[in-house]
């Protein structure tokens, strides 16, 4: 009788089902119409099947975004799960598109699908990478900016997982502040 190792044929289930979205800036369409759901997955194998199939962030045109969100959460401030939330924001220099962008974005995806933030992973809604001429951005979105413990834990682990230098700080901003800001910078609620 043949004994088959289940590892060889069972896909590895993730804690959550995730949706990958793609935003392409077409000015003739509404913001929402430009936001397209690419695919959903809930296993390690299906994550890689999708990731290996699509363009790296650094190859996207300026104005495009990828967003990875838990199934049922739309990648916008208005979603009920994002409304009171905010984001840990990494702003990259133009030069970092070549050196760091793809590595940081993959690191961000692995933090999400691998549930890197322990009990605070439930506070994570998703992550977004914005490809922009003036400098790309990567952010992890969480559901409640008032959950100080969850937000700061997520920020500390995130920074460590990406291997960001100690002297580099990243800031957390509420979506409410980001959406009503008048200048180009939003004040940080937390910094790690």
């Amino acid at each position: 009788q043949e004994i088959v190792n289940p590892e060889a044929y069972i896909k590895h289930p993730l804690q959550n089902r995730w949706s990958l979205w793609f935003f392409k800036n077409d000015k003739s369409k509404t913001w929402q119409a430009n936001q397209r759901l690419i695919s959903k997955f809930d296993t390690v194998e299906d994550f890689w099947a999708l990731y290996n199939h699509i363009q790296l962030s650094s190859n996207l045109m300026s104005g495009c975004d990828y967003s990875l969100f838990k199934d049922g959460i739309e990648p916008m401030w208005e979603d009920e799960r994002n409304r009171r939330g905010g984001r840990w924001l990494i702003t990259l220099t133009k030069q970092q598109r070549r050196s760091d962008l793809d590595c940081y974005w993959l690191g961000t995806l692995l933090c999400l699908v691998g549930e890197a933030f322990d009990d605070y992973s439930d506070d994570v809604c998703g992550a977004v990478v914005n490809i922009r001429t003036k400098g790309d951005k990567i952010a992890i979105w969480t559901s409640d900016y008032e959950n100080r413990e969850a937000v700061t834990h997520i920020g500390r682990v995130y920074k460590e997982r990406l291997g960001l230098p100690m002297k580099m700080t990243i800031g957390y901003q509420s979506h409410a502040d980001t959406s009503t800001k008048s200048g180009s910078s939003t004040k940080n609620k937390f910094v790690v």
Binding site: H12, V44, E45, D46, W48, L110, V113, G114, A116, D118
Partner: peptide, 20 residues
Amino acid sequence: GKRQYDRGFLLAFQFMPACI
């Protein structure tokens, strides 16, 4: 408990042929 996977574990599957 949560299904947590670290970076090394996840990366090991990147180029493994997926089963159907």
